[in-house]
Each structure stands twice: as structure tokens, then as C-alpha cells.
Lab assay of single mutants.
Amino acid sequence: PKDQAKKEIEKALRNGDEEKAKRLAKKYGISDDDWKELKKRVS
């Protein structure tokens, strides 16, 4: 599910692991808009 994916990506971003977050986003098909939203929430 997308919500689970977003949680994992957000966690990776919080850990400062943007490479992992990007890989997860690609793997789960997270859209650019969702990606920006996640980045905003974390920063």
C-alpha cells in the first residue's frame, strides 16, 4: 500500500538517507507531487 511506502520513505528522509528514500519512491511508484509533499513534511 502507498501509505506504508510513504511511511518508509519519510523514515528514510528523517534519517537523512535520501538515496534510500529515492530508491523506495521509485520502487513504489511515488509521484513527484507525493515526493515533494514528503520532503516538505520532513524538512
Rank of each mutant, 00 (worst) to 15 (best):
E10K: 04
K7S: 10
K39V: 15
D32Q: 08
D3S: 10
I30R: 00
K27R: 11
A12D: 02
D3Q: 10
A21P: 00
Y28S: 03
P1F: 12
K26F: 10
K27C: 14
K22W: 14
K36M: 13
D33F: 05
D32H: 07
K6E: 10
K20C: 12
K7Y: 11
I9C: 04
A5L: 08
D34V: 07
Q4S: 10
R14N: 04
I30E: 00
E37P: 01
G16I: 02
E37A: 09
G29T: 04
K2Y: 15
L24K: 01
D33A: 12
Y28F: 09
K2S: 14
Q4Y: 13
L24I: 06
D17M: 07
D17S: 04
D34F: 04
L13R: 01
K22H: 08
L38P: 01
K6P: 03
D17F: 13
G29C: 13
N15S: 13
W35K: 01
L38E: 01
S43T: 11
K2E: 11
P1A: 12
E18K: 05
S43P: 07
I30D: 00
I30G: 00
K39E: 06
K39A: 06
S43M: 15
W35N: 01
N15H: 10
K22S: 06
K20V: 08
R23F: 13
K2Q: 14
K11R: 14
L38A: 02
K26P: 00
K40H: 15
K40W: 12
E19F: 09
K27D: 06
D33I: 06
K7P: 03
D32Y: 12
K20S: 10
G16P: 01
K6H: 13
Q4P: 06
K11S: 11
S43Y: 14
K27E: 10
I30L: 14
R41A: 14
R41T: 10
W35C: 03
R14Y: 05
K36L: 14
L38H: 01
A21I: 01
I30C: 04
P1V: 13
A5R: 08
R41K: 15
G29P: 01
Y28H: 06
S31K: 03
E10P: 00
E10S: 05
R14P: 00
K2T: 14
R23G: 07
R23W: 12
L24Y: 03
P1T: 12
K7H: 09
G29I: 03
E10R: 05
E8V: 06
G16D: 04
E19Q: 11
E18A: 05
P1I: 12
W35F: 15
K11P: 00
K39D: 02
R14M: 08
K40N: 14
A25R: 08
K22N: 04
K11E: 14
A12M: 10
K22Y: 12
G16H: 07
D33S: 09
K7M: 13
E18L: 11
K39Y: 08
K20R: 12
I9Q: 00
Q4I: 11
A21V: 02
V42R: 03
